[in-house]
Amino acid sequence: MTQHADEQVSFGYEDVAPEEKTRRVGAVFSNVAAKYDVMNDAMSGGMHRLWKDRFVRRVKPQPGEAILDMAGGTGDIAFRMAARGAEVTVADINQEMLDVGIERAMERGIDGLSWSRQNAEELTYPSRLFDAYTIAFGIRNVTHIDKALAEAYRVLKHGGRFFCLEFSTTEWPGFREVYDAYSHKLVPQLGKLIAGDSESYRYLIESIRRFPPMPEFEAMIRDAGFTRTRVEPIMGGLVAIHSGWKV
């Protein structure tokens, strides 16, 4: 199917051509790769570590399972799953992010991970290869989310499970306004101070605002073919764990 010439997708608060979003997102993560984990700590007060721990507990990786960690870049999720005996393939479209992850794995003495540059919308893996597919804080940066979900479904075995950790919109009264002010005003300043890059972090915050609300994203997961879908809000929905099964 050919794309319409006038198709537009979101890049932060802008609407751009799909190929332009792909190019710009690539540039963002090339820019932030070296300081990505330091900035995650600064932006979340270290809470991203707790969210990731909780996420992996929900995935329940088992020894010997083949798991694809898409947009796994710096290895945060993969390291946790490998520690439980899973055979993890870390995939990311951005080579700079993968390079940071490989270096971190070597520093920690973590062996056995596979690393692969992959486009979530066009995976090179055969169908029905993996027991689980995980993606943490990556799906909102994909150009066509529906294509990425379709690929996740394709590469999973029957009985396989899909888990996604992503920012959403908190429903806690009062907290939403405080977080909006913090994220729009302070996060770009933190990006400039720590990573020397305010614009990339401005995009990352804007991309959260443009991401579909929890019920809408759950519907997209179902539309991709997954069943028994579930949403687990954290901090009122500031972050959410989405899951589904291929049966």
Rank of each mutant, 00 (worst) to 15 (best):
K21T: 09
T22R: 15
T22Y: 07
R23K: 14
R24N: 07
V25L: 05
V25E: 00
V25D: 02
V25G: 03
G26T: 05
G26R: 07
A27L: 12
A27P: 06
A27E: 15
V28W: 01
V28D: 05
F29T: 09
F29K: 10
F29A: 08
F29M: 08
F29L: 10
S30V: 13
S30L: 13
N31Q: 13
N31S: 15
N31P: 04
V32K: 04
V32A: 08
V32E: 06
A33H: 04
A34Y: 10
A34E: 14
A34N: 12
K35V: 09
Y36N: 15
Y36E: 15
Y36G: 15
Y36H: 15
D37G: 07
D37V: 06
D37H: 10
D37M: 11
V38T: 15
V38W: 14
V38E: 15
V38G: 09
M39W: 11
M39Y: 03
M39K: 11
M39H: 12
M39D: 13
M39A: 09
N40Y: 04
N40Q: 08
N40G: 07
D41T: 08
D41Y: 04
D41R: 04
D41S: 05
A42E: 13
A42S: 12
A42W: 09
A42K: 06
M43D: 01
M43C: 07
M43W: 04
M43H: 02
S44H: 03
S44F: 01
S44P: 01
G45Q: 08
G45C: 10
G45D: 11
G46Y: 09
G46L: 07
G46K: 05
G46P: 04
M47L: 14
M47V: 12
H48L: 00
H48T: 00
R49T: 13
R49W: 13
R49D: 13
L50Q: 10
L50M: 10
L50I: 12
L50R: 11
W51Q: 01
W51H: 00
W51D: 01
W51M: 00
K52A: 01
D53W: 14
D53F: 14
D53I: 11
D53K: 14
D53E: 15
R54K: 08
R54L: 15
R54D: 08
F55I: 02
F55G: 11
V56S: 02
V56G: 01
V56Y: 02
R57D: 14
R58P: 03
R58S: 12
R58W: 10
R58Y: 05
R58I: 12
R58G: 06
R58N: 10
K60C: 09
K60Q: 13
K60Y: 06
P61S: 01
P61V: 00
P61A: 01
G64A: 04
G64T: 02
E65A: 08
E65Y: 03
A66H: 06
A66M: 11
A66P: 04
A66Q: 12
A66F: 11
A66Y: 10
A66S: 11
I67W: 04
I67Y: 07
I67L: 13
I67R: 05
L68I: 03
L68Q: 01
L68G: 01
L68C: 12
D69N: 10
M70H: 02
M70G: 07
M70V: 10
A71I: 00
A71S: 09
A71D: 02
A71G: 05
G72A: 13
G72N: 09
G72P: 02
G72Y: 04
G72H: 06
G72M: 06
G73L: 06
G73W: 00
G73C: 07
G73E: 08
G73F: 02
G73V: 04
